[in-house]
């Protein structure tokens, strides 16, 4: 459902639903790695989702809309917000070197160990599907063509930037040296009576493999340096404007017409168009709660003086003599 949203705050909200599902799976399996993974995921998801929502809020503050089909190209005006959002989604998708990878790895280990095929299939599907929905706001809101309406948008204000950057730094930190957090989680687990996690230096011992996040980050750094050297050694590229792009040698002048954002995952959505919608289920619950509220409103907060006096009397009686009446 996150995949089909056009409004990016709702999209991030639905992603929290998906992550909640992961945490539930982790806690339900009950062995050391999975509970540790679930607790780590709570931590990682808290930071990442919060950062993503803050980035979204910064965009709304500057442009006034959350509909992805009206935004676009904001990276050229708000690069730091983009970086915060990027780090948040790398963590949410479970990609190293961020904290989300650690928790996903631990949960997958115990799923495989216990041989839970169908849960694992659903978890894999969710994990890969999360690439889809986290990528969409990145591409539709920050990348792509800058609309002429947003030419004068400025970067988010400093007071908004500070918490966002703080959250990103924490996510990065726990991705590179997670054992600090995992040490705390270990103590939580042993105090609950579950076996602890096997940690050794910077490594995490899984049930069928070993993970060393610091090593991964270092090697990723080495790879990046090699790529950077390769890039710098070769001739410098010429900078061109954003509208100066391949249009099959035709001409176009409106940036909005060149920005692909609406109905992004159209083919995928068409596949499950006919399935019953969870959204309609939520809407039914919403309506029922509303009715309940209205009923309560009629019963307790009505304008008729008789009802009000009745309730005041009831409350006074129960406050003064409730204890005696109950026992």
């Amino acid at each position: 459902m996150a995949i089909r949203q056009e409004d990016f705050k709702k999209l991030i909200a639905y992603s929290s639903v998906a992550n909640g599902g992961y945490i539930l799976i982790g806690l339900a399996m009950g062995d050391a790695l999975s509970v540790g993974g679930a607790l780590m995921h709570i931590l990682a998801h808290a930071f990442a989702s919060a950062a993503a929502f803050l980035a979204a809020a910064a965009v709304v503050h500057r442009t006034g809309t959350t509909k992805m089909s009206e935004l676009g190209g904001l990276i050229h005006r708000m690069p730091l917000t983009y970086l915060v959002y990027l780090i948040a989604i790398i963590s949410m998708a479970g990609i190293p070197p961020m904290a989300g990878f650690i928790s996903k790895w631990m949960m997958f280990q115990s799923m495989i160990n216990n041989g839970m095929i169908f849960t694992a299939a659903a978890a894999f599907f969710g994990s890969i599907g999360s690439f889809l929905y986290v990528f969409r706001p990145l591409s539709a809101v920050f990348l792509g063509q800058l609309s002429t309406k947003h030419e004068n948008v400025k970067e988010a204000p400093v007071l908004m930037m500070i918490p966002m950057m703080l959250l990103s730094l924490i996510t990065l930190f726990f991705g590179v040296v997670p054992n600090i957090a995992l040490g705390v989680i270990n103590r939580v687990q042993t105090s609950l009576g579950l076996p602890g996690l096997a940690l050794e230096g910077t490594k995490i011992m899984g049930s069928n493999g070993v993970l060393d996040p610091t090593l991964i980050t270092i090697i990723f750094g080495v790879g990046f340096v090699v790529a950077l050297i390769l890039f710098i050694l070769h001739p410098k590229s010429r900078k061109v404007g954003l509208m100066d792009t391949y249009t099959a040698s035709e001409f176009i002048w409106t940036p909005e017409l060149l920005h692909y954002a609406h109905d992004f995952y159209a083919p995928f959505e068409r596949l499950y168009n006919k399935a019953p919608r969870t959204e309609s289920f939520y809407r039914i619950i919403e309506r029922k709660i509303e009715e309940l509220g209205r009923l309560a409103g009629h019963a307790f907060f009505s304008y008729k003086p008789g009802t009000v006096v009745f309730w005041i009397a009831m409350v006074t009686v129960s406050l003064l003599w409730g204890g005696a009446l109950w026992s």
Partner: peptide, 30 residues
């Protein structure tokens, strides 16, 4: 903007001959 303008233009790997088709695409439907 709901539509994207794409070109099956003259310089395109899928074009036969040399004409240009301008398409207004929503999602992936023309």
């Amino acid at each position: 903007m709901k539509e994207v303008k794409l070109f099956l233009g003259p310089q395109h790997p899928g074009m036969h001959g040399n004409s240009s088709i301008h398409m207004y695409v929503d999602g992936d439907i023309i």
